[in-house]
Amino acid sequence: MIERPPNQPPPAGEGVSLFGDAPEIDLSRGRVDLTLVRLRMAWRTLRDGWAVFVESRIGVLSLAIIAVFALMAFSHPILMATVWEPDVYDPVTGYAFDRFDHPAPPNWRHPLGTDSLGRDILSQLLFSAKSEFILGITAALVTVGIATTVGAVAAYYGGLVDSLLMRLADLIIALPGISLLIVLSALFNLNLFYLALIIGVLGGFGGTAIILKSQALSIRVKPYIEAARAAGGSHFHVIFVHIIPNLLPLSLLYMMFTVTGAIFAEAVLSFLGLLDIRMSWGIMIHTANVGGYLLSGANYWWLVIPAGASITLLCSAFYLVGRALDEVVNPRLRRHDG
C-alpha cells in the first residue's frame, strides 16, 4: 500500500543502473558528449549508492576487514625486502635457525610462532593473503566477463542461443562445485591459476549468467537500446556499449560472492591436499593436520587459528559486502523507502 511520492525524485540507487537510464539520445551530439553525461551520472549513482551502503554497519565493517587483509597482502613483499631475511622468513623455504622447538610458540622474532617445518607463520599468513586476493579477483573477473557477455547475448538474441546458454547454466548450477573440483584435481594438476580459471568459468556460465540475463532482459526493452539500433548500431555495439555497462553494478554484487566461493574452494582443496600450490591458508592447516597437531587442542593454536580465522573472516567479509550491495541495488530490501 506504499506509494512513492509523486513529487520526489526516486531514491538513491533506485534500480541497478550504474549509468542511470541513459538520457534521450540526441543523435546530433557527438559521442564524447554522451560519455561525459554518462560519467557524470555514473558518479552520481555511485555517490548515492555509497550513501545507502554506509547505512549498513555490517557492510562497512566487512569492507574494513577486506582493507586490512589487502594491507597485509601488500606488507609481505615490503617486509621481505626490509626487515625479514629470506632464509628465515620465506613462507615456503625459510627456516627459523634461532629455535629448535618447532613448531615454536609465538615469540619476539616470530609473532605468530613457526610451523612444524620451522617456517614463520606470520610470513605465511601475509604471503597467502596475496594469493587469496589474486585467486579471488581473477576468478571474479573471469566470472563477470563471461557472465555479462553470456547474459547480454542470451537476452539480446533470445531463441536458440538463449535456450542453449541457459540449459548450460542450469546444468552447471545443478553440480556441486567442490565435489566437481575434487574430481578434477584427481585428473589434472590444479595450480592457483587453473583453479581461478575453472571457478571463474563455472561461475560465469552458471548462476551468475542466469541472474544477469534477467537483468539484461529488462535493459533490452529500454528506449535507448531501440534508439541505438535505429541509429545503425551493430549487434556487437549494442551489446558491448549499451547493455553490458548497465549490467556491471549487478555483476559487482556477484563478484563478491564469486570471491567468497573461490577462496573457500581453494582452502578446502588445499586442506585436503589436492592442489598444486606452494602456500596458502588452506595449506597451512593441511600442514598442521598432516603433522597431527590439529587435535592436540589449544596447545598448538597458532598453527590453526590464524589461518582458519583468516579464511573465515575474508570469506565472510566478501560475502557480507555482497549482501550490503544487494540492499543498494535492490531497493525492496531496504528499511525505508523514500
Partner: peptide
C-alpha cells in the same frame, strides 16, 4: 508523519 531519509514527511 513518515520518517524518511530526507527527514520527517
Amino acid at each position: 508523519s513518515y520518517l524518511t531519509r530526507q527527514g520527517p514527511l
